[in-house]
Design a protein around this nucleic acid. Sequence first.
RNA 1: GCCUCUGUGGCGGAACUGGUAUACGCGUACGCUUUAGGAGCGUAUCCCGUAAGGGUUGGAGGUUCAAAUCCUCCCAGAGGCACCA
Length: 973
Amino acid sequence: MTDSPIAYDKYDGKAIEEKWRKAWEEVALDSPDLASAKRPYYNLMMFPYPSAEGLHVGNMYAFTGSDIYGRFKRMQGYDVFEPIGLDGFGIHSENFALKIGRHPMDHAVITQKNYYNQLHAIGAMFDWTRTVETYNPDYYRWTQWVFTQMFKHGLCYRGKAEVNWCPSCKTVLADEQVIDNSCERCGKMVEKRQLEQWFFKITAYAEKLLQNSFSLDWATKVKVAQKAWIGKKEGIHITYPVVTKDGAKVADLTCFTTRPDTNFGATFVVMAPEHPLVGELFTVKSQTLQVNSVSNDGERALSQINAATTAQILDYVQASKQKTPQDRVAEGRKKTGVFTGYYCVNGLNGKKLPLYISDFVLAGFGTGAVIGVPGHDKRDFAFAIQFDIDIQRVVIAPDGDTSPISRPEQVQEEEGVMVNSGFLNGIPVQEAIEKMKDYLVNKGWGKRVTTYHLRDWLISRQRYWGPPIPMIYCQACAKADKGEQKAMPGWFTVPDSELPVVLPRIDDYKPGDDGVAPLAKHKEFYETTCPGCGGKAVRETDVSDTFLDSSWYFLRYPSVARNLEGGRWKMDIDSGRLDALNFQDVKESKVQDPSSKISNFKKSHSFPWNPDITKKWLPVHMYTGGAEHSVLHLMYSRFVTMALHDWGYIDFDEPFSSFYAHGLVIKDGAKMSKSKGNVVNPDDYIKLYGADALRLYLMFTGPYDQGGDFRDSAMEGMARWVQKVWRLAMKNISSYDASDPLVPSDSSQHSILSSATVKKALHRAIKKVGEDLERRRYNTAIATMMEFVNIVVDEEGARPQTPEPRPTSQDEVVAGGRSDGGRGVMGSDDLGNFLKILAPFAPYMTEELYQRLRAGMTDDQLASPTGGLPLTNEKKGSKSETLSQYTFTKSNSIHFQPWPAYDPKLLVDDSAEIAVQVNGKLRATVVVSRQSSVVREEVEKSARQSDRVAKHLEGKTVIKVIFVPGKLINFVV
RNA sequence: GCCUCUGUGGCGGAACUGGUAUACGCGUACGCUUUAGGAGCGUAUCCCGUAAGGGUUGGAGGUUCAAAUCCUCCCAGAGGCACCA
């Protein structure tokens, strides 16, 4: 020890981080050999979409939490693969590029560089030899392949549909991307448009998506959300004859209900304005009522309803159709509608139920027609009040109320017993539902049906920045009724050998509001030949939804081609690495003139993933991400995986064995967003305090699944703790003899042994931190390590820079230890173990300290952070002949050390503190020996001896004594 | 409206299956150290009370020897779904 201001009194994060990033890359620390791995563990974090100003601290929070878990698994002996990539293809990136007026291709190059630089800095164990960027042609080639496979397997179709149109993003949106009738991305109100679009038949997997979800090891929050989104409902279709006032039948009308039990209480029927029957019953042409395709009875009905009524009805229908969805909902409880003049006949009791048209009934759900049971449905009740329709009670709720239903509170929907319902009287609701279904089916009036809320996935986008949909349309073939799929004449997939359909660089990439994709203005793109007849044909000019890109990326990571070809590849972050096939290539090569690189690539790659590697590494063992993707990305990924499985391409049907939903970082009480101006950029903090301190701080803010609150002052506190650990470790390292490097096997050789207190505390910490890591309670794990450091500092009793002999009692230092004080109280192997449990949280600092410990590097020169000693063996000085053993290799990195074991014997105290209660209130604590702490008599005896206890027992009779061995004794008086 | 989750000091948060509420950290105050700044070190810090003692986990009840934890109702906040029949 010297008093000189040597480097070790301050942790220099910047220099040390840089040094280890290089060193780790040099030895390929974080690139597991996927082919030979014995215990594969695929630890995946959702890849970010580089849309805006860069990675923010919320991203870093998410990545760090996932990374710590991966590092822990690695120390437990798993071969952990932790990849990273960018989801930079699609509307979010394009919108940002449009906003700042930069071409999306150029923007992608820039954001990739920025993001990868930032992602390097956060200290995650990403395997930088295997990245995936969704906009790279070598990736989206396979996204397009997935599309063609969907088509080939009949899961993809084209249909004219009422779609969600975002007037601001100028594109259609999937149902899942519409939140509160607004665009998920930009927040603008969504309009409805009739457009021809591509769909994936995700509904074909509705039941499987639901059934599988029950057995997934996923955050329940997410499973609940998925279940709700799938929205399975078991009900019944009931068909009613539609009759005139005089009872002449004119048509049939089918209604959907989940509550047929209340059918005796039905007093009206309502259909949506868009219902086909509306058009069948009334036409616009004449101002007189027209009844289409019905019997003579119907013809006679003509005269009974005058033209004015018809006009009124048609007006209402027109008006409803023009309303936006939000208008319809906004009118809310105030029901509107119009009577048709017709009736439905309820077969149960022969009642004629007036038939209305109202826009509270949704055309898109069920059959677009419902049975009005105002006594037992709140909307029906509101409608009945509005139109003065009869209200009948058919259920007696548990409250026993049997009076006529006249107030909304009386409308009871869930439970009770049937009444006024013929054969159902006295039967509980649940039972009655089944009974009624059977009855209706028997009578031939009804048919059991299962419906789902889940809709087919609208996959096409009229935008530029996405994978062109790899389809070709041939008019000639269409006329001849020829095509790849019978149901879709004229349509052909682009042959595999011609994928990718490269997205050309065009300058007029801005979306128009005509619903036509930018590529549609480029003949050189869309003109092609028909794979069927060889004649002239056109390419599809829409691109696919971003969520298709991310629906299969986890399959790609382990198989990224360059790794399968062998040879180590080195990341060059400064050059903003792009793949063999990148934008430069695309820019140079026009679409119609594919470069030789592309053809070469195609020849050598015929499948998107390596089957052996995939079998070994998938499904993903642990997937971490935000809960906001509960029904978007996670549902689509599951669907695509199921489809790939059913086509025989993979042997599992769920992509993620475990899914963990992390919380969000908030600042000043609000979620971070640029609109609120509270976004924190991690770069500045990393520069100021180091990545380790920021990692620790973020994880310390709260439980990982609940998120945390970012505060600058608390960040400084964590930076102080990092310094404290550094000083403590350096002081201990310097107190070991130079000839006394870390020898894990035989601690008796050490000149300094830990005091019993320190040793005990360490083993407790090992246990607790390990348990907390498994549960991802990072905040309490860090607290445990802080407590441990506090104990060590207390034990040392002397300040780091004033090596006064500390007052020690002899028994604190294990026999054989050096008790000259003021130097350190941890044995070198104990220090090593402490560094190991801290390593997942603070990977840089712990590596530096661990290597110093191994090498016994204590003198000024070696202690200099930039000394770089561990990487070489050419240092001068007295230690030169032993230095070869200190060369840094993968296997002696702290991150490849086994997670330390704790000694259960050290967790047990010699004495125990027992809480003494009188009538459940704590009155005292007594300390007894370990052995007697579990013996009732002994504990009771010492408890009664306590003054404070005696005081409270005085003059009272003890009725009962509760004894919890080793913990507590309670006198009941 | 329905579903899920969350309410603990000035603040972020601890408390595994009911068993010593407020660990750990931030902040604050005082002191030591430092040329200064910063940093470091020490002490204190839920509330009332000089003390003995009493009170306290959003609110009100309940179960129990014992409740932050279990049950019922209510209040507040976050997220998801939503005229879904």
